[in-house]
């Protein structure tokens, strides 16, 4: 089982420890999603038409990858991207590698299919435990397909770590000067909430979920693309992770989708086409009177 033995070793108590040359070890869980705007619904069956829909890295995960990359740029270290998904989700991991991530692991097993956020967070956190020591876990705010934002905090909870959500800025990594160690021991961040920004300090390791405001994701480089194409991505199955079949998938999920239906939007729609000065006046007059009727003016 390749668990990055060249970089991490087990100490006498059996715990994975980092090579001291590595400043930071950052894990970024990502998801492959359909490029959302294309998803169509079969009007007859109410099911999704997935054929021909392009799969991409969850756009909000790109901000998590970028955050990890910019921390590594400053402090050194390694970035491991992990994803739970079907075999083709390896493509999402390759894209992260082409942006500059160091290693990737795919969590792939047919028994994972149908997992809710609880079961998904369980699988990801189990895999993260297997990766050894780390300083940061950085997640996107949520996936654009499921739109729950529950997996990041769920991972933190399973790992018994605190989570800082909606991080909009990394202020600094805090070194421990007494210990004369260059290895950061804490982090200070801005967190975007409804009324402004909270400034939060945490000890490492900690789980962050980041919002768009944090950075502009970089594009893959040519060298990165070549590396991504040639990289062997280890695949971990449920049994590799010591996960029982009944802990994941539909049976391991605590919630269950029982019905999908199309919302019916009933609006009496009125339209006016503006072609000249006269029709413009007419349209505006009509709109003003509608707004006045509804007491909006």
């Amino acid at each position: 089982m390749p668990i990055f033995k060249e970089r991490s070793t087990k100490n006498s108590s059996g715990k994975w420890v980092n090579d001291k040359n590595i400043a930071m070890r950052i894990i970024v869980p990502i998801k492959q999603v359909p490029s959302s705007d294309d998803v169509q619904l079969d009007p007859q069956t109410g099911t999704l038409i997935r054929q021909g829909v392009e799969a991409i890295v969850n756009p909000l995960d790109l901000y998590a990858i970028e955050t990890a990359l910019s921390i590594r740029d400053k402090h050194g270290g390694e970035i491991i991207v992990i994803s739970m998904g079907p075999a083709q989700a390896a493509e999402a991991l390759r894209e992260a590698i082409s942006m500059g991530a160091d290693e990737a692991v795919l969590l792939c097993d047919s028994v994972f299919a149908g997992s809710d956020t609880y079961a998904t967070a369980y699988v990801l956190s189990t895999a993260i435990k297997r990766l050894g020591e780390y300083d940061l876990i950085i997640c996107g705010e949520r996936a654009t397909d499921g739109e729950t934002g529950q997996v990041g905090p769920g991972i933190a909870s399973f790992l018994n770590l605190p989570v800082i959500t909606y991080v909009s800025k990394i202020d600094e990594l805090i070194e421990n000067h007494r210990k004369q160690s260059k290895h950061p021991e804490g982090i200070r961040v801005h967190r975007l909430i409804e009324t402004g920004y909270e400034i939060i300090k945490a000890d490492l390791p900690v789980v962050l979920t980041v919002v768009k405001e944090i950075a502009i994701p970089r594009l893959p480089t040519l060298a990165g693309k070549i590396r991504a194409r040639n990289l062997q991505i280890p695949i971990w199955s449920a049994s590799d992770l010591g996960i029982e079949k009944n802990q994941v998938g539909l049976t391991g999920s605590l919630t269950k989708v029982v019905k999908i239906h199309k919302p019916c939007i009933v609006r009496k729609s009125e339209k006016i086409t503006v072609e000249n000065e006269l029709s413009r006046q007419e349209a505006i007059n009509r709109l003003i009177s509608i707004l006045q009727d509804k007491l909006l003016l």
Partner: peptide, 16 residues
């Protein structure tokens, strides 16, 4: 709402 708001999903928690 699920899948880009295209549909509404009804979800239950059977046992937990």
């Amino acid at each position: 709402p699920a899948i880009g708001g295209n549909v509404l999903a009804t979800i239950i928690t059977p046992a937990a």
